[in-house]
Amino acid sequence: MFTFFSNWRRQRLLTRFDSERRARWQQNLDALPILDGLSQQEQIRLLELGWCFLHGKRFTPVMDAELTDDHCIDIALMAALPVLNLGLDAYGVFYELLIYPEEFVTDLQFVDANGVEHQSREELSGEAWEQGPVLLSQSKLADSRHWNGYNLVIHELAHKLDMANGGIADGLPALPVPLQSDWLQVFPKAFANHCRQAELALSLPEGSAEANLAWDRLWIDPYGAENQAEFFAVCVEAFFTDPIALNLAYPPLYHLLGQFLGQNPLARAPQWQPLPHLRCQ
């Protein structure tokens, strides 16, 4: 019943997506480098998913953020990319995106390894709430367009993709049954390796040649060492914005993400090779 209603609503929304509006959105798609190389059929599907995403969510500017049509279209197109072959239902149920002009401060609670609860305040550029909205910093959107390993929209929507399986972010999305066994072997192993590399880099004298080399060998965002939920988000982010780096770091994980998401960004990403000394582990 839910799928029937979703499809019915999608078709109603698309009746308003006329040729003039499609041409307007195509201009934004063409100006986003991380969308380069998509086939014509993929572009059509992305435009339609983005249109439905935009009209299925509230885009709410807060703290005097000046939100333009271009901002909204770009966010919607980037949000549609991870679920290009999964559909918007893969994000689960949420209704709102809160757009801040700059980074924002949020209260955090966490429990350490000894079971002690801690509270802190942290400045963030984005956040995805369980059973709640997605928060984005408008000032970071300009950096979220290129093949540079960073995309705030994809990172936060990856959390929603993760949360769609059981309502919590834990690094275990709603995978097809044939992928689940391999995921439970590959993902924790990659996460543990990433944590070891991050810990090594942190343990070395800051600014030393050894520390710089250790950081350079972290092919994806060190923030992924925070927990498995963040590791999943930075891996999805890297999958679409620096797939070569993710594939260099964790080829089996890149392959599994490709099977899950039904995409292979390696085929359309700008090609580069690491320096020889960075291949040595």
Rank of each mutant, 00 (worst) to 15 (best):
residue 202 L to P: 00
residue 244 I to C: 10
residue 141 L to G: 03
residue 148 N to K: 04
residue 201 A to S: 13
residue 215 W to Q: 07
residue 254 Y to P: 08
residue 158 A to N: 03
residue 238 A to R: 04
residue 216 D to R: 13
residue 196 R to P: 00
residue 210 E to I: 07
residue 187 F to E: 01
residue 183 W to E: 09
residue 155 H to Q: 05
residue 165 N to G: 08
residue 177 V to D: 15
residue 201 A to D: 06
residue 225 A to I: 04
residue 252 P to G: 07
residue 164 A to E: 05
residue 227 N to E: 11
residue 240 F to C: 06
residue 186 V to H: 05
residue 213 L to V: 11
residue 158 A to H: 02
residue 145 R to D: 06
residue 233 A to C: 01
residue 166 G to M: 14
residue 232 F to P: 04
residue 161 L to Q: 05
residue 255 H to Y: 13
residue 152 L to Q: 12
residue 199 E to M: 12
residue 261 L to C: 07
residue 137 S to E: 09
residue 258 G to C: 06
residue 136 L to V: 06
residue 243 P to I: 07
residue 161 L to P: 10
residue 204 L to G: 06
residue 154 I to G: 01
residue 232 F to L: 12
residue 209 A to E: 14
residue 233 A to T: 00
residue 245 A to P: 00
residue 175 L to D: 02
residue 200 L to A: 06
residue 208 S to L: 08
residue 229 A to M: 06
residue 138 Q to T: 05
residue 172 L to Y: 13
residue 153 V to G: 11
residue 227 N to W: 02
residue 141 L to R: 01
residue 170 D to P: 12
residue 153 V to K: 12
residue 197 Q to A: 14
residue 199 E to Q: 15
residue 223 Y to A: 08
residue 201 A to R: 01
residue 239 F to D: 07
residue 141 L to F: 08
residue 188 P to W: 09
residue 222 P to T: 02
residue 161 L to N: 10
residue 191 F to M: 03
residue 231 F to P: 01
residue 219 W to T: 00
residue 264 N to P: 05
residue 148 N to C: 10
residue 205 P to A: 04
residue 261 L to Y: 08
residue 140 K to R: 15
residue 217 R to G: 11
residue 218 L to V: 01
residue 169 A to M: 15
residue 177 V to K: 14
residue 136 L to E: 04
residue 149 G to T: 03
residue 228 Q to F: 02
residue 256 L to K: 02
residue 216 D to Q: 15
residue 149 G to A: 07
residue 134 V to P: 03
residue 146 H to D: 15
residue 261 L to T: 06
residue 199 E to S: 13
residue 225 A to Y: 05
residue 134 V to H: 05
residue 236 V to M: 03
residue 233 A to V: 00
residue 234 V to I: 14
residue 193 N to E: 13
residue 174 A to L: 15
residue 212 N to W: 09
residue 203 S to M: 05
residue 234 V to K: 00
residue 218 L to E: 02
residue 148 N to I: 05
residue 221 D to R: 00
residue 268 R to W: 10
residue 171 G to I: 12
residue 174 A to T: 13
residue 217 R to I: 06
residue 134 V to Q: 06
residue 166 G to T: 15
residue 232 F to H: 02
residue 137 S to D: 14
residue 264 N to E: 13
residue 133 P to W: 04
residue 176 P to T: 03
